[in-house]
Design a protein around this nucleic acid. Structure first.
Length: 479
RNA sequence: GGCGCCAUAGCCAAGUGGUAAGGCAGAGGACUGCAAAUCCUUUAUUCUCCAGUUCAAAUCUGGAUGGCGCCUCCA
């Protein structure tokens, strides 16, 4: 079965057909590094990480590029405020970005190109666009002549007339037409600048993505992703630049994620209603945040508050509990094998059924919400079987359970949240807890409930959770 | 003003023609010394509203209402 994805360019779901068989080349607009990233920034990062992982899971050879905009008005302004060199400021926040992304389980892109390291490519591209009469230079600025490019508006579904009304020329700009946008900006005093055929200056915002995507993925590549707010003007301009320059289709599939909202309002730096990811990660583990983002389809809006993260944490714990239950059951059966029961057939069939449902869901425009339902179904069925009082099993049952554990690992390669990340405990802790558990066991045998409860309650604040299960007491460490 | 998106239970959320997935929270029960975890049962005769098409609509069409986004930096 083929993977279908929603293409903003044609406003419909389409079957994915790669430019080159077996390969996926994708580019995602990364952050402008002038601050720590906020939750809204995290959405595309996670969404496209999942998409990228899924293509890989389905056997594609994926090349994934995500840029950093490390030169920009906002960076320059922020650098002035912090009295830092703009390049150093960008570097600081790029490092912070990776720290945050790592916690979310986001894999590194194959390439993380920076604008400052691609000035040469950008200048070459601007020059070619000028040669094709699609851009013009005025006093060190270079502007793209929008009316010269016939396809302008095809992504955002706007006509030039529609755009005319909202367009304006800012003070100091020298555009021939209000709709034209800057490819190159003449240097202002004190700003980072590079030599160019048009004098000292720096790239406009849009040209970087065209130059870098072309360099790493070719003139025509498969997927371009980003937030829905980038459709216009950023991605519209990218199309104009890349196709104007190269003369061929630049991107086959445009994918856009929906927004995170706060009280139904868009979370954004400009509205000031944003939550820094690092602050959220101080309260909730990365996998929980990732699960929360994944629980809703990537194109839908997603409202944020702490209660929703708390609910996500509970949901995720349900999956983790099942994972632990299976692992413990296997260990128990290995110690004291019984005979394989009639549950064996069901256990053996489970992985294939769940895998099928998971893939069908993900194939349909990466329906993570539905894919997770398949995992919850698995949890329910396994829990039901394993909790039967008379459940036992031999070699075959153990194999079947191991296959289910392997399925968790397999699906985890896509969603990266299915396997609980145990807090590490050192040997001393292990040994001490064994002693404590023994003491508590004696207290319980003697029906000394106050002592037993004291031990359990006192350890809880330390992150040690004691549970008395039908199979005996056990403890786990949680954050 | 132009372009576009959305509306499903207390909350989150899937479902785009065949009779409402899943999760959280709630209720009852099992298990337990208690708690936790888990299991069983239960929670929308109905998908914002109105009209239409159809044997059949949450799903298609038209309209209304409400909410959001883009058009200026934004993921």
């Amino acid at each position: 079965m083929a993977i279908k994805l929603y293409n903003t360019l044609r406003k419909q779901k389409e079957e994915f057909v790669p430019v080159e068989p077996g390969k996926v080349k994708m580019y995602v607009c990364g952050p402008t590094t002038y601050n720590y990233i906020h939750l809204g920034n995290a959405r595309p990062i996670v969404a496209f990480d999942i998409i990228r992982r899924y293509f890989r899971y389905r056997g594609f050879d994926v090349t994934y590029v995500q840029n950093f905009t490390d030169v920009d008005d906002k960076i320059i302004n922020r650098a002035k405020e912090e009295n830092m060199d703009p390049v150093a400021l960008a570097k600081k926040y790029i490092e912070a970005y990776f720290a945050d992304a790592d916690q979310l389980g986001v894999l590194r892109a194959d390439v993380h190109p920076k604008v400052t390291e691609h000035i040469k490519e950008i200048i070459t591209m601007v020059r070619r666009i000028i040669e094709r009469d699609l851009a013009y230079e005025v006093n060190g600025d270079v502007y793209f002549a929008v009316r010269q490019f016939p396809g302008y508006g095809k992504l955002s579904g706007r006509s030039l007339e529609d755009m005319q009304a909202g367009a304006r020329i800012a003070v100091g700009e020298q555009k021939r037409d209000p709709l034209d946008f800057a490819l190159w900006k003449a240097a202002k005093p004190g700003e980072p600048a590079w030599n160019s055929p048009w004098g000292k200056g720096r790239p406009g915002w849009h040209i970087e993505c065209s130059a870098m995507s072309t360099k790493y993925l070719g003139e025509t590549f498969d997927i371009h992703g980003g937030g829905a707010d980038l459709i216009f003007p950023h991605h519209e301009n990218e199309i104009a630049q890349s196709e104007g320059c190269n003369g061929v289709l630049s991107v086959k599939y445009w994918l856009h994620n929906g927004f995170i909202t706060i009280n139904q309002e868009k979370m954004s730096k400009s509205l000031g209603n944003f939550f820094l990811l690092r602050d959220i990660l101080a309260k909730f583990p990365g996998p929980v945040v990732r699960f929360y983002l994944m629980n809703t389809h990537y194109r839908s809006p997603l409202d944020f508050d702490d209660q929703k993260l708390a609910a996500a944490e509970k949901s995720l714990q349900r999956i983790w509990t099942t994972y632990r239950l299976i692992a413990e059951k296997i260990a128990g059966l290995e110690k004291a094998p019984g005979s394989d029961g009639e549950d064996l057939a069901t256990l053996k069939e489970l992985p294939e059924k769940v895998r099928e449902n998971f893939i069908a869901a993900m194939d349909d425009d990466f329906n993570t919400s539905l894919a997770l339902a398949a995992v919850f179904d698995l949890c329910k069925e396994v829990n039901t079987l394993l909790n039967q009082r008379d459940f036992q099993g031999g070699e075959e049952t153990i194999k079947a359970l191991q296959a289910i554990l392997a399925l968790f690992a397999e699906l985890d390669a896509v969603v990266a949240v299915l396997i609980p990340k145990e807090e590490e405990t050192d040997d001393l802790t292990q040994d001490l807890l064994e002693i404590i558990m023994n003491l508590r066991g004696k207290a319980r045998s003697a029906k000394d409930w106050p002592t037993a409860d004291y031990i359990r309650d006192a350890l809880k604040p330390l992150g040690i959770i004691i549970e008395d299960t039908p199979d005996g007491p056990r403890w786990k460490k949680e954050k």
